[in-house]
């Protein structure tokens, strides 16, 4: 069984909500990424979304944009990121890793080569922000290599397309909680609860909710109706100023552990 499916299967058995932190690979320090991933797991991460930096992240707000710029200034490339996943897997064979990014770096690397190398490195799923279901054929090599294709669903997604997304979904469906860019602060849980309930009713995979979740309180509110909560910009922003690997890991633990606690009712 794929690590993502296995993890959600365990969570369903225990009745827990998955906590999915997002970090930008190579940020804030290129040589801290593997340690940071382990720190996130220790603090209670169930799945790690590892952002592949891109020069033109058109769906991201300023926090992730700056993280991408920092990583690219440190010359972080696709080969580095896959190597970090490989190193992470040396000590952690269970926590699912999802690469999240934009299509051009994958296409230029070569989609088939990327699929093969990512699967070999121990990546479990790939979320390509600017590749909607209409362009799905482009990413078939990822599926062929055994990688799960994580799809986004937005408040603007029509019923017809939602049905297609539900049909094609693997791993989990990522529900974007509002129409906007990452890191914006206009989360209204009442509005999204109903929509997520409707998606969950039809979906064969768990539904994660992201965009606008920034702390224990907002995470707990979303956990009331979602299978998983994704936290990105708030975490990336909290780590941005760290200058040593230790500081990065302590910061990540300090940020994530209280959220885990809130989700577990502690």
């Amino acid at each position: 069984m794929n690590r993502i499916d296995a993890r959600f299967s365990d969570l369903r058995a225990s009745g827990g909500t998955a906590l999915i932190p997002f970090i930008t690979a190579g940020d804030p320090l290129p040589d801290a990424t593997v340690a940071l991933m382990h720190a996130l797991v220790e603090a209670g991460a169930d799945v790690i979304e590892l952002g592949v930096p891109f020069s033109d992240p058109m769906a991201d707000g300023p926090v992730i944009q700056h993280a991408d710029e920092r990583a690219l200034r440190n010359r972080v490339g696709t080969a580095d990121i896959l190597q970090w996943v490989r190193e992470f897997r040396e000590c952690d064979s269970e926590t699912p890793v999802v690469l999240m990014g934009y299509l051009n770096p994958i296409e230029i690397h070569g989609i088939e080569r990327f699929a093969r190398e990512a699967a070999d490195a121990g990546v479990d799923g790939v979320l390509v922000v600017d590749c909607p279901i209409e362009e799905d054929a482009t990413l078939q090599p990822l599926r062929d290599a055994g990688l799960q294709r994580i799809l986004l669903v937005a408040p603007t997604t029509s019923d017809v397309r939602l049905a297609r997304a539900i049909d094609a979904a693997e791993g989990y469906l990522y529900y974007v909680s509002f129409a906007g860019i990452t890191g914006a602060a206009k989360l209204s849980t009442a509005d999204i609860a109903q929509r997520v309930a409707a998606i969950r009713a039809g979906a064969k995979v768990p539904v994660a909710v992201g965009f606008g979740i920034k702390d224990a309180q907002s995470a707990k509110a979303v956990a009331a109706f979602a299978d998983a909560v994704v936290i990105g910009s708030a975490l990336v922003g909290a780590l941005a100023g760290a200058v040593t690997s230790d500081e990065v890991c302590r910061g990540a633990h300090g940020f994530l552990a209280p959220i885990r606690g809130a989700l577990d009712g502690r």
Partner: peptide, 10 residues
């Protein structure tokens, strides 16, 4: 083609 984030498809 149409290579945009999900929110812009509609």
């Amino acid at each position: 083609g149409t290579f945009v984030a999900e929110t812009l498809i509609a």
